[in-house]
Simulated scan of single mutants.
Amino acid sequence: MENPDCILCRGRNADAELDRIEVWQDDHWRLTVALSSEVMEFAYLEPKRHISHIHALDGAEAASFGTAMARCSEALRSTTGADVVYVYIFGDGVPHLHVHLAPHRDGDALNDSMIRGEIVEEKLPNGMTSFQSAEFPPLPREDLEQIANRLRRKLND
């Protein structure tokens, strides 16, 4: 179902205005690549049907989401020689779900920090690195555990 007020519902008819080009589609999804970007092959995966947010996925789009993500991400990774493809979903004012796929190579414009403020890195004993904001202290552990338990109950009922 199209939303007449949604630019992404216009599909290919909006690509020139959004300065992008369609590179793939199936029955439920389309992938476009930005023609103006500081990142090679920065792409957008979006459902053809108007779906406002990821939590609203259902039916055929929900069933095919993982397959479409994996296929498009791997194609972007191998085509660009990227080390990894970052996946972002922002509520950036566009009322149509669109997943940002950003192929990342060492030295490009991307970073791996998604936290606001000065980032403090700590190497953990297991070899992983913890990233935390110097401006935003961690939330109380008991609050986080309480929310995690509510989420567990909701998902397992």
Score class of each variant (00 low, 15 high):
Met1Ala: 14
Asn3Ala: 01
Arg10Val: 13
Gly11Trp: 04
Gly11Ser: 11
Gly11Lys: 09
Arg12Thr: 12
Arg12Gln: 10
Asn13His: 13
Ala14Thr: 11
Asp15Arg: 05
Asp15Val: 01
Ala16Arg: 14
Glu17Val: 11
Arg20Val: 11
Ile21His: 14
Ile21Met: 12
Val23Ala: 03
Val23Arg: 07
Trp24Asp: 07
Gln25Trp: 00
Gln25Ser: 12
Asp26Met: 09
His28Gly: 01
Trp29Tyr: 11
Leu31Asn: 00
Leu31Glu: 04
Thr32Arg: 00
Val33Phe: 03
Val33Thr: 08
Val33Gly: 00
Val33Ala: 04
Leu35Pro: 09
Ser36Val: 12
Ser37Glu: 00
Glu38Tyr: 10
Glu38Lys: 04
Val39Trp: 08
Val39Ser: 05
Met40Gln: 08
Glu41Ala: 09
Phe42Leu: 06
Phe42Met: 07
Phe42His: 13
Tyr44Leu: 06
Glu46Ser: 13
Pro47His: 01
Pro47Val: 09
Pro47Trp: 02
Lys48Gly: 04
Arg49Leu: 01
Arg49Gln: 10
His50Glu: 04
Ile51Lys: 04
His53Trp: 08
His53Phe: 07
Ala56Glu: 15
Leu57Pro: 05
Asp58Gln: 15
Gly59Ala: 13
Gly59Tyr: 14
Ala60His: 12
Ala62Gln: 13
Ala63Gly: 09
Ser64Ala: 00
Phe65Val: 00
Thr67Tyr: 11
Met69Thr: 09
Cys72His: 01
Cys72Ser: 02
Glu74Cys: 03
Glu74Ser: 03
Glu74Phe: 00
Ala75Thr: 15
Ala75Lys: 12
Ala75His: 15
Leu76Pro: 01
Arg77Ser: 05
Ser78Val: 13
Thr79Trp: 00
Thr80Arg: 02
Gly81Ala: 11
Ala82Glu: 03
Ala82Phe: 00
Asp83Pro: 06
Asp83Asn: 08
Val84Asn: 12
Val84Lys: 15
Tyr86Phe: 09
Tyr88Met: 14
Tyr88Asp: 12
Phe90Tyr: 08
Phe90Cys: 06
Gly93Trp: 05
Pro95Asp: 02
Pro95Phe: 04
Pro95Gln: 03
His96Ile: 13
His98Met: 03
His98Leu: 02
His100Ala: 13
Leu101Cys: 06
Ala102Ser: 07
Ala102Pro: 04
Pro103Ser: 05
His104Asp: 02
His104Val: 00
Asp106Tyr: 02
Asp106Glu: 13
Gly107Ala: 08
Asp108Thr: 15
Ala109Leu: 13
Ala109Glu: 11
Asn111Trp: 00
Asp112Gly: 09
Asp112His: 11
Ile115Lys: 13
Arg116Lys: 09
Arg116Gln: 06
Arg116Phe: 00
Val120Trp: 01
Val120His: 06
Glu122Thr: 10
Met128Tyr: 08
Thr129Lys: 10
Phe131Cys: 03
Phe131Arg: 06
Gln132Glu: 02
Gln132Tyr: 05
Ala134Cys: 06
Glu135Val: 00
Pro140His: 11
Pro140Asp: 01
Pro140Asn: 05
Pro140Glu: 03
Arg141Asn: 09
Asp143Ser: 07
Leu144Pro: 04
Leu144Arg: 14
Glu145Met: 14
Glu145Asp: 12
Gln146Leu: 07
Gln146Met: 08
Arg150Lys: 14
Arg153Lys: 15
Leu155His: 12
